[in-house]
Design a binder for these strands. Structure first.
Lengths: 332, 332
DNA sequence: CTGAAAGCGCTTACAG
DNA sequence: CTGAAAGCGCTTACAG
């Protein structure tokens, strides 16, 4: 006897599943959510699962969020420039790990012009994470939208998670140039990225390392890839610079291109090392030395870290991340 | 007389605003949503808006979604490879335009391994859009999750929106090579991208154009940037190929690198044209000819298109998109 | 023009 | 071990 069969157009609800399985609505919830502290007999559990399967039941996420007060969404705010090569691996790995724990990772590149409604307003994420401190107005907006966890925390001076801002790469660039005999270095980045917090973070790491090695403090040089950067290269050579640590491989390629066009040679006239081991580092002629990061491991670490924050777990984060690897090619 | 002031820890609700403004809850909704058909006196409206402002009220998005049945989220599923340069502009422009209409754009790169819960399950988007047809299981999953609009529509043979799959770029590559006197062409893409629907779409456009011009059908050549691609270049030259249309500038750079390393010259021995006008096209030595797309205009067009779909508007989409521009450098 | 009230589909104490 | 019920914070007919 068919009692109000769900029509084709209506999406089945937990009540439909309960009726189909002959149990109460609450029991359906307990089974489907594996609610701890509830002991459901095997038979009941099976019946519920089969009924859900048969009806193609998917819980309504808005209702769940409203009732539970948690969206199970983690919002990762990415810097708007530059998108790193291999970021894809990082995000895939992080998403997969968070998915296993029942969370969805949404990435969001905040626009420079801040007039648009920020994404956390529409998503009510349980956690918003960024690679650097958020502006006071962003923090206020998140708080007003009910975001309970923000990282980096607006009031605490925590170090940024290692998976988001790694200093080992720039350090290794400086070490490598130093080993190759270079004593006067500059750090190069694209002028288009001068607002990027990642640039300043990496530059700072390079400066600290140079100081430790007893080198002069490398200058931060903003170059423009559109003009060939020839002027900058001539200036550096005039100032006795012999080594360039670049923010990423694109920057390294821009510098290397200027060197080649000026009729100079690498690494004899100028040594250049990039960062990320992007395809261009292989394709460029000459091949570009660079630093390879284990982004898969970093992504996993990010997931651990985010779960730690969102579930308020105390103690340290377990995952170890292998250090970056030097890839030496023809430019150093 | 303070009547149950909202504590610092509680987020204000529409009821708080109503009390603060001295109106009913429903009125608050009418004012804040600009509900058509409701005529609210100016004074009341002002009072409500000021009360909302004063309390820092933000509507709870989950509650709104649950009650209205619409999330006002548009989910754009991106192909997992390759991410186009200038995609950022496209997305920023699209987001801004959609935001003005009250929608949030979320982008989502679907992982190759499909075990994770797809993002549409957590977000309940009003519309899911992708650059190519979704798999039957994806469609089934979207339907089960209550997604009402899917594009491309699973049952209809609509052409993909022009903002997502533009054929004018590949056509212009072929035209340019043809004008420069090349008659035997290949189309090159990275082997790592062989599952990408964008590659096949662009390749098909190039093939169609070659046919129109009376040229032999260009072969689709998969190259690997890691091995220098020297073997492929030698093979092409042996087969009388003189022109290469590349999927993007990275591919063009890989080919160009192989040409340089083989001691050959561009465009004399082989002409190469890329696509996107990415930084690498400027930085590479020699400079790479390429196609520049007006991604800002495309992004705006995508927004128009998405609003059209999500609000079921009939008729054509208004926005005109300027054609791609040829950027000639040293490689052709 | 404004308000009281039902309802969206869940979660989660609280009883039995 | 299971169920009846309140409640999450909105939207939206429906009365007045």
């Amino acid at each position: 006897m068919a009692v109000s069969e769900p029509t084709a157009s209506r999406r089945p609800t937990a009540l439909d599943v309960a009726r189909e399985a002959g149990v109460s609505r609450a029991t359906v919830g307990f089974v489907l959510n594996n609610t701890p502290g509830q002991t459901i007999p095997k038979g009941t559990r099976e019946r519920v699962l089969q009924a859900a399967e048969r009806l193609g039941y998917r819980p309504n996420s808005a209702a769940r969020t409203l009732a539970s007060g948690r969206s199970r969404i983690i919002l990762l705010v990415l810097p708007d420039w530059p998108i790193e090569f291999r970021l894809r691996n990082y995000l895939d790995e992080a998403s997969a790990a968070l998915d296993k724990a029942g969370y969805s990772l949404v990435t969001y590149t905040r626009q420079a012009d801040q007039t648009a409604r920020p994404l956390w307003e529409a998503l009510s994420p349980d956690l918003v994470v960024g690679p650097a401190r958020f502006s006071p107005s962003d923090v206020a907006s998140m708080l007003a939208c009910g975001v309970r966890r923000i990282y980096p925390h607006p009031d605490r001076a925590e170090p940024v998670d290692a998976s988001l801002a790694i200093s080992a790469g720039p350090e290794q660039q400086v070490d490598h140039l130093h080993e190759r005999g270079h004593r006067n270095l500059v750090y190069a980045a694209f002028a288009q990225a001068h607002t990027s917090s990642m640039v300043t973070a990496r530059y700072q790491a390079a400066v600290d390392r140079a100081r430790t090695l007893g080198l002069a403090e490398p200058g931060l040089e903003w170059i423009d890839y559109r003009d060939g950067s020839g002027e900058a290269v001539r200036r550096w050579l005039g100032a006795g610079i012999t080594g360039v640590a670049a923010f990423n491989d694109d920057v390294a390629a821009a510098v290397a291109g200027a060197v080649v066009r000026a009729g100079l040679r690498m690494p004899t006239d100028l040594a250049v090392i990039g960062h990320d081991d992007a395809p261009i580092a292989t394709m460029f002629v000459p091949g570009l030395s660079t630093i390879r990061i284990d982004t898969v491991a970093l992504g996993r670490r990010f997931a651990d870290f985010a779960l730690h924050k969102v579930e308020q777990r105390p103690g340290p984060i377990s995952h170890n991340v292998p250090g970056p690897a030097l890839i030496q090619r023809e430019s150093t």
